[in-house]
Amino acid sequence: MRYIRRYYGAGPLHLLSLLACLAFAGYVVTLVHQAREWQLILLWFGGAIIGHDIVAFPLYALADRSAGLLGALRHPDSLPPVPWINHIRVPAVISGLLLAISFPLVLDLAGPSYHGATGLSVAPFAGRYLLIVAVLFGTSAVLYALRVRSAVRRQAIPSPSSRPDGTDT
């Protein structure tokens, strides 16, 4: 047991389960190899990891950090500062996720096959999506305005319990 832990780095159950998993995966890869266009299947599988970890994640992490840099957005000094970052983040995240599940229709990538199957055109989807995004950001803007207003109100009524800054998402 000690030797396995020392040279392998974990217990025997770890080794056995991983060997079983990898051997089984190898078996499935031999089945993939018999499939038509097997190279594309493996390419897309590998591309899936790279696509998320090395492309998509850095992009949205960078977008999130850049939003933070928009600290240049200044409130007029007459208004109390109310945290705004989540008012951009939340609609942006929801918009991104909605696009992720409908992008072939919204971006017109599936036009001919959609029409062949349904008899309809993909054209309305782009407009629907943009309208939904507008509603998301619009609602966020209204909520932000309401928060600023209530912060102004609290400031105008001095009391020990009033706090000028919003404290939560």
């Binding site: 499939a35 038509r36 266009e37 097997w38 594309l40 299947i41 897309w44 409908s102 992008f103 072939p104 229709l105 990538l109 599936a110 096959s113 959609y114 199957a117």
Partner: peptide, 10 residues
């Protein structure tokens, strides 16, 4: 489900 088959395999 969105009728986009550009992956090329079945």
């Amino acid at each position: 489900i969105d009728y986009y088959y550009s992956f090329g395999f079945s």
